Simulated scan of single mutants.
Amino acid sequence: MNIADIETIPLRIPFSAGGKSDDAVWGKRGLQTADSLVVKVTTDTGLVGWGETFGFHTVAPARIVIDTILKPELVGRDATQIERIMVEMQKKFHVFGRSGAFLHSLSAIDIALWDIAGKSAGQPVHQLLGGTDATSLRAYASLSRYTDPELVRINVQRAIRDGFRHLKLHEIEVPAVRAAREAAGDDIEITLDVNAPWSVREALDMAEKLRPYNLRWLEEPVWPPENYAGLAQVRRDGGIPVAAGENASTLMDFQHLLAAGAVDFVQPSPAKMGGITELRKIYALAAAHNTTVMVHTFYDGPGLLASVHASAALGGRNAIVEWRYFDMEAQLYGDAILPRQGAIDVPQGPGLGLEPIPEVIRDYRIA
């Protein structure tokens, strides 16, 4: 069963998020459209697999990498040899770097090949990863950055009304975090992702101010994100559990992160760091370091499904899935994957278990 074709499909879907976003870390201020890159891999037997890269400003370079570098290399290759393909492509093209657009692109193809593997075997991907008895997983609502405390309060309350008991903020100012805790009360779990803005000293000063708000974790507090020694210092002295890993790539990056004792929660992002092939290795590595995996999933296509399958099979009953809390004008899978009362279904069909809706691709595809 060989790879016959690889097609890149850029999508742009409008959304609302309960108010205009402030300085959005995923795009421009006031961002109101979500760009994504879906990848369709077709075999010579007619099986189709779907993958996804991380979106927003990363779509254009990832598409160039797939169309001009990876597709010519991979068409004709055995689609069942996923591990071999991933290693050989990383070795051959390491001159482009071990992260960024190249690895995002390879991640999407890896996810698509796992989708094909499951369809070929007639089993869901979670079964290929060891199986699970979970039919649903808890989800946390991952909110936009608003900065305005009143908008934060409104959207925290909105998420709670939608059934979420776990929330993630992307705020970087104390009044916004205070508003979230006041709106949520003491029984709702709140995490805070600040997207790597601070020096170690600034992060420690902010941690002191944030401690009263009982955060489950403080995510990526240090710039640059690969300053693992600095992260370890914030973890040791800041008084709040630390999470990171969204910007780490491949097994070795995570080895360095965990060996530094930098995190309480490690957050591999399958559409960035090597797909399911690398993601499953991170679970074993994290277990060896007594660290909890919380998969980063700020997307809602095949990358989300990959996260759900891996979390269900490898994460155990404590797994919580990130849900991008945007009101999308259209969902790639309709309502099949929408959380209900704060829980997301684990697809049971072969492969990733769901197929993109052709009309959504037709209506929201961009050139």
Rank of each mutant, 00 (worst) to 15 (best):
G334Q: 08
D23E: 15
M294F: 09
H289G: 11
W223P: 00
L257T: 03
L128P: 04
D300M: 07
T45H: 08
G230I: 09
A286L: 03
S311N: 06
F93L: 03
M328Y: 14
P124N: 06
Q348D: 09
A112C: 12
R29A: 15
W26F: 14
R280C: 08
S311E: 01
A312H: 13
S199R: 04
P212C: 10
N227Q: 13
I240G: 01
Q233N: 09
A196T: 11
S107A: 07
H57N: 13
G100N: 10
W26R: 13
T68I: 05
G334N: 05
L11A: 10
T42K: 12
E171D: 14
E182G: 11
D133H: 10
Q341N: 12
E246F: 03
H170A: 14
V174R: 02
G315H: 02
I366S: 10
G27A: 15
D67S: 11
K40M: 11
F326R: 05
I69P: 01
T45S: 14
E150K: 07
V321C: 07
D237G: 06
E73P: 03
R216M: 13
A313G: 08
G97K: 07
M89Y: 06
A343K: 14
V200K: 03
G46D: 04
T147M: 06
T58D: 02
L129T: 02
V59G: 04
S105M: 01
W50C: 02
I190E: 04
D253H: 13
M294H: 09
T8Y: 00
M252L: 11
V321K: 03
P270A: 14
T135K: 11
G97M: 05
M273L: 13
A306M: 05
G274Y: 03
R98H: 14
H94C: 08
V177D: 00
M252V: 10
G163D: 09
N318S: 13
R12K: 13
V360Y: 01
R236F: 11
K281R: 15
H296W: 06
A244P: 01
S269Y: 09
S107N: 03
A184N: 04
Y299H: 08
L11N: 04
V200F: 07
V59Y: 05
L314S: 05
R317S: 13
R181T: 11
A229V: 06
W223G: 00
L338S: 04
Q127V: 15
A284V: 15
V222S: 01
G130Y: 06
A117G: 12
P14I: 06
